[in-house]
Amino acid sequence: MPATLELLRISATTAPAPGVRTMPTITKLVDTTTCIGCKACEVACQEWNDLPPETTVQMGTYQTLPDMTANFWNLIRFREHEENGALSWLMRKDQCMHCADPGCLAACPAPGAIVQYTNGIVDFQQDQCIGCGYCMTGCPFDVPKFHVKTQRVYKCTMCVDRVSVGLQPACVKACPTSCLQFGTKDAMLEVANKRVEQLHANGFAQAAVYDPPGVGGTSVITVLAHGDRPELYGLPRDPTIPMAVRLWKGPLKWLGNLAMVGGILGVLVHYVRVGRKDHD
């Protein structure tokens, strides 16, 4: 249900997006240092979005599934990290990061199948999706998941249906430790930075907020105790829209269009100037 006046970007469209209503950028804060791995957020996500249950997989950890699926958009990843004889349990909430500069949207060829609202939410419109999977190619976080039966792609909606009526996302609502919080980007950055300061004081000198600038920042920001090594949590160090996708949607597209128009103009000019090989 896209709210027309709140559409900041629309995939595969030649016209400007109609969003004139400015809204504060909303953000979900994930504080991995206070996550207890209860997975209430996973359940809340399934419940609110009324998604069919997935059969869980025993992976030797508490992790529900090896990866997100088309029916499972919020996965707590459990990683055991050993360093200097100390074991730390690094949990991370894997979901769509709602990039300010979304690679999925840049790659999508179907008009209106991916939209971005003025509040920063990136949302898939499955009725317009043609199932090509370009969004999966464009995403630097490997988030969009293909549904074999419906042949469409799915991911976290940031509970856009809740947020647009003033509620917080279901996962945030369910979190018992407040490691998930929801608000404007400014407010969440303030909370996150304060938490990072605490962590610095508590001996986590490398603690940092993960809000990668390569994708313009994200609407899901994460506090990491080992902020210098996001890969420990399975997060890419400096995610950007993949180079090949940028080349494809940027210079190659212009060169290609120019070459095609040039080729057609070229043969037209040849036809008028030289013409057919006459048989006299």
Partner: peptide, 20 residues
């Protein structure tokens, strides 16, 4: 590109280069 949904995350560069 046809099988892009089956490419594991670690090999995503293969799908990207194939698309280009």
């Amino acid at each position: 590109m046809w099988l892009v949904a089956s490419i594991p995350g670690e090999l995503s560069a293969v799908g990207q280069i194939a698309t280009l």
